[in-house]
Simulated assay, not measured.
Amino acid sequence: MMPLTMLSSGQSETIKRITGKDETKKFLESLGFVVGGNISVISESGGNLIVNVKDTRVAISKVMANRVMV
């Protein structure tokens, strides 16, 4: 298991765990980051990631991406 920030552009993985406080987990879940779901990194810009989750492009900060384990 590793944080989402370790993936390269174009790489796809399955979300295995989401860490952090309950409010952080709920926020990420509302964006489509759920355990067992597929996620792929589209690009990285200034430490922030643009990812594809549930057929939707989402931009998240490096801090949030470090809470998503793949």
Rank of each mutant, 00 (worst) to 15 (best):
G47F: 02
V58W: 00
V53H: 00
I39Y: 07
Q11M: 14
T14R: 15
M1T: 02
N52G: 06
L4S: 07
L49V: 04
F27I: 01
K25A: 11
E29D: 10
T24R: 11
G32M: 08
S30P: 00
A59E: 04
I18H: 13
V41T: 06
E29P: 00
S30E: 12
M2C: 08
T19R: 13
V41S: 08
K25Y: 11
R57S: 09
G47P: 02
N66E: 15
N48A: 04
V70A: 10
V68E: 04
G37M: 08
I50Q: 06
G36N: 05
M64T: 04
T19H: 06
S43G: 11
I18C: 11
D22G: 06
G37I: 05
L4V: 03
I60Y: 07
I39E: 08
V58M: 03
T14I: 15
N48P: 01
V34K: 15
S61N: 07
S61L: 03
D22A: 14
D22N: 11
A59T: 01
S61V: 00
V34Q: 14
R67I: 01
S45H: 13
V34C: 09
V53C: 15
G32T: 10
N52I: 02
E29V: 05
T19Y: 07
F27V: 07
G37T: 02
M64Y: 07
G47L: 05
G20E: 08
M1C: 10
A65I: 05
M2F: 15
K16P: 00
V51H: 03
E23T: 08
Q11C: 08
S45W: 05
L49S: 00
N38Q: 15
V53E: 02
T24W: 10
I60F: 03
Q11W: 00
L31N: 03
V51S: 02
E44H: 01
F33Y: 03
G47A: 04
L31Y: 06
A65E: 00
M1L: 14
A65D: 08
S40G: 04
L49K: 02
S12W: 09
R57E: 11
S30M: 12
M1V: 06
S40W: 08
G36V: 12
K21M: 09
S61H: 01
T56S: 14
D22H: 10
T24N: 10
S30Q: 11
V68H: 02
G10R: 06
E44K: 12
N66D: 15
V35Q: 09
V63K: 15
F33N: 01
G32P: 00
D55T: 05
E29Q: 13
S40F: 09
G20T: 06
V35E: 12
N38C: 07
L28D: 04
E23L: 10
N52V: 02
I42F: 12
